[in-house]
């Protein structure tokens, strides 16, 4: 029982910490990566609640679909004042 409580507290900490990182970090790409960490730790919470099918769906739909879409958008809408934006044309 103590081990289970420690596991819950640990993954709750990971969930809340990486969610805070999503809204507090400056760069959008870092936000997207931290969102992936938050979604994966929510999947761990589902496994602890005996919802294994939902955990699989969480990883497939969110990490495999939604996060990839967000990654595409991050790559497509890089702003021009950022230094990375011009590297494409210099290469």
């Amino acid at each position: 029982m103590v081990v289970e409580t420690i596991a819950f507290a640990l993954f709750a900490l990971v969930t809340v910490g990486s969610s805070l990182g999503v809204v507090l970090v400056e760069d959008v790409w870092h936000s997207a990566l931290l969102l992936g960490a938050a979604l994966l730790s929510v999947a761990v919470h589902y496994v602890m609640l005996q919802a294994e099918f939902l955990a699989a769906m969480q990883i497939l739909v969110y990490v495999g679909g939604v996060l990839i879409l967000i990654t595409f958008a991050v790559m497509l809408v890089r702003r021009e004042d950022e230094p990375e934006a011009m590297e494409v044309f210099e290469a």
């Binding site: 709750a12 969930t15 809340v16 969610s19 805070l20 999503v22 809204v23 959008v28 936000s31 997207a32 969102l35 938050a38 979604l39 919470h45 969110y62 939604v66 967000i70 958008a73 991050v74 809408v77």
Partner: peptide, 28 residues
């Protein structure tokens, strides 16, 4: 736990200006 994650999402919606951050906050 879920109240914390929800309020972090509200915080992101209220304080950030990037539309992509809006999308991620709604996901949270």
């Amino acid at each position: 736990l879920s109240a914390a994650v929800f309020c972090i999402g509200v915080f992101g919606l209220l304080t950030r200006k990037n539309a992509l951050l809006f999308l991620m906050s709604v996901e949270l």
